[in-house]
């Protein structure tokens, strides 16, 4: 029996077809440590693309895509083995269901990963999650009592720092109630393949590259340019200004000066 941890040097989405059956532009490769944003109008197929990766599609979804691992199509046994394990996914309808305190649960997770010091790992993850969440939670809070944003923050921190999955898929983190810039920071450092579907310009520019969707297929792939990186800095500052203003309004301060 192999260990539960998995490694992957390259994931390829081999091209499928768009909603009218026309072939997609080309294959797309994903590498560890690389963050890719999926952009495109509502209904253009971003979530479908994520689902294709999650299910290790083998020409058995509407898009006809195939997922290759390290350049090869996994055989049926391998595919079965990886189902539910290769990919950690964060969607809006996911919640914690276990009746346990946060610290106890994360420690348990760290133990199952054979961490040298599970308690220390748990503290680190809880701190990371609290840095993402709006309102911090206590280590002994119940998992099921966390707010939507706190749950998402804990899921992101745990997936980035402790999960065995080399691939992390996120659908619309901007609506998750977490500090997206910090979340991105954490994910970039995690050395995972990260793919994010988003409508948010800051997130889009935070990614190393962007896939543009149209009519159910990838139309273009754009690497982030140096000028775009500068634009990101500018945008981030504007956003910070925006949140400072929101905070002051929330506290009932005067903002007319």
């Amino acid at each position: 029996m192999a260990t539960d941890a998995l490694t992957l040097a390259r994931l390829t989405v081999a091209r499928g077809r768009d909603k009218s059956g026309r072939p997609e532009a080309g294959d797309v490769d994903f590498a560890p440590g690389q963050v890719t944003a999926l952009l495109g109008p509502t209904g253009s197929g971003k979530s479908r693309f994520l689902a294709d990766i999650e299910s290790l599609a083998d020409d058995d979804t509407p898009s006809g895509r195939r997922i290759l691992l390290d350049g090869a199509l996994p055989d049926p046994d391998r595919r079965f083995e990886l189902q539910g394990r290769l990919v950690a996914q964060l969607t809006q309808n996911m919640n914690f269901v276990l009746d346990l305190g946060v610290e106890r649960f994360i420690t348990m997770h760290a133990e199952s990963r054979q961490a040298a010091d599970p308690a220390a790992v748990a503290r680190q993850i809880i701190a990371a999650a609290n840095a993402l969440a709006g309102e911090p939670f206590a280590p002994d809070a119940q998992l099921t009592q966390l707010s939507g944003g706190q749950s998402r923050a804990l899921m992101i921190a745990d997936a980035a720092l402790l999960s065995w999955s080399p691939v992390l898929l996120i659908d619309e983190i901007e609506n998750a109630g977490v500090d997206k810039a910090r979340a991105l920071d954490l994910l970039v450092k995690s050395d995972k393949i990260v793919v994010i579907a988003t409508h948010d310009p800051v997130l889009a520019l935070s990614a190393h590259r962007r896939l543009i969707f149209e009519h159910g297929a990838v139309r273009t792939v754009r690497e982030r340019s140096a000028a775009e990186k500068r634009l990101l800095t500018q945008l981030t500052e504007q956003e910070a200004e925006f949140s400072r203003l929101r905070e002051r309004l929330r506290r009932g301060e005067d903002v007319d000066s």
Partner: peptide, 26 residues
């Protein structure tokens, strides 16, 4: 319906109860 973390902990628990079985997610 659950987080990746829960899936992983749960799988570990199953493994502790049966270390011979093949475990698969469906």
């Amino acid at each position: 319906l659950v987080s990746q973390a829960e899936r992983e902990v749960y799988r570990h628990r199953i493994r502790q109860m049966n270390n011979r079985a093949v475990i698969r997610h469906v």
